[in-house]
Design a protein around this nucleic acid. Sequence first.
DNA 1: AAACAACTTCGACTTAGGTCGAGGTCAACC
DNA 2: GGTTGACCTCGACCTAAGTCGAAGTTGTTT
Lengths: 153, 153
Amino acid sequence: MSKLPEMLTIGQVAERSGVPHTALRFYEERGLIASVRTAGNQRRYARSVLRRLAFIRTAQRVGLSLEDVHEALTTLPDNRTPTKSDWSRLSTSWQVELDARIDALQRLRDRLTSCIGCGCLSLRSCSLHNFDDEQAADGPGAPKLKPAIEGGT
Amino acid sequence: MSKLPEMLTIGQVAERSGVPHTALRFYEERGLIASVRTAGNQRRYARSVLRRLAFIRTAQRVGLSLEDVHEALTTLPDNRTPTKSDWSRLSTSWQVELDARIDALQRLRDRLTSCIGCGCLSLRSCSLHNFDDEQAADGPGAPKLKPAIEGGT
DNA sequence: AAACAACTTCGACTTAGGTCGAGGTCAACC
DNA sequence: GGTTGACCTCGACCTAAGTCGAAGTTGTTT
């Protein structure tokens, strides 16, 4: 009757996702993915875990921590269809962060681009050389650099 | 005659850059920044270290490792004015990576954006739900996910 | 010259994100 | 029903990027 949704073994998931089985157990421990167990205590994964893994790896690749991802994913419950407001919560909280990162990356890239042009033989006009312009790292009460990556806005 | 270039103590650099003094010593150990020593063995930094620190922190913030940064910075020698080809090397190698990251971030953001719109009540059309589309994580020889961050192409 | 803050080194510790191996169990095929 | 490969747990270990504290030194100020 109910056709079983074709569960995958950990080996199959590792194979198909490219994520090592050790990492899969680690992610499960961290609550990022879920599995059910066979009578003999072996993990079986729903196919949807591949989507989750793709999401996790992408997020990681752009510098988000597993905890960020965890927080995001737990707002999207596994057991029910996510509602519009589930998505809104996740989206809006992430978009600020993602936008900031995109912006930082683009500025970093653009600096480098303009440096090719300037040749940097005249250091005076090199924007990379003058990287601290925007920090005005001079006065006694100079603003700190961004305290690196951190959760939250 | 030669007016000394106003060396900074480690405390001053920490204060002005917002980078903890412990991290400054750590970066020095890793070859990311340099200092000279006083007769009494204390560190003194050129003001240019503030630029370097801003660069380092920015790069880190967007997910690059200190080793990435180190590699990049060592192609820009401290002791001579960087040439056009110094810059070219750094720029082109980073731009590929930066572009890829920007792209990944934007797609991640756009997925989330479109998810707000779709409401994800019809999972069939949700791009996040169908995240693995681009991976085609199905066949036996399915392409692996990106092996996460790496000093890649 | 004495006090005291700021500096030094060094080793131990921390958190994140995992990997590795030992010792044991499960499942699938012959 | 036995072998073989995939799986299990658990604890030790690993790298990156630092932090912390102890014990001693420097440098500035009075």
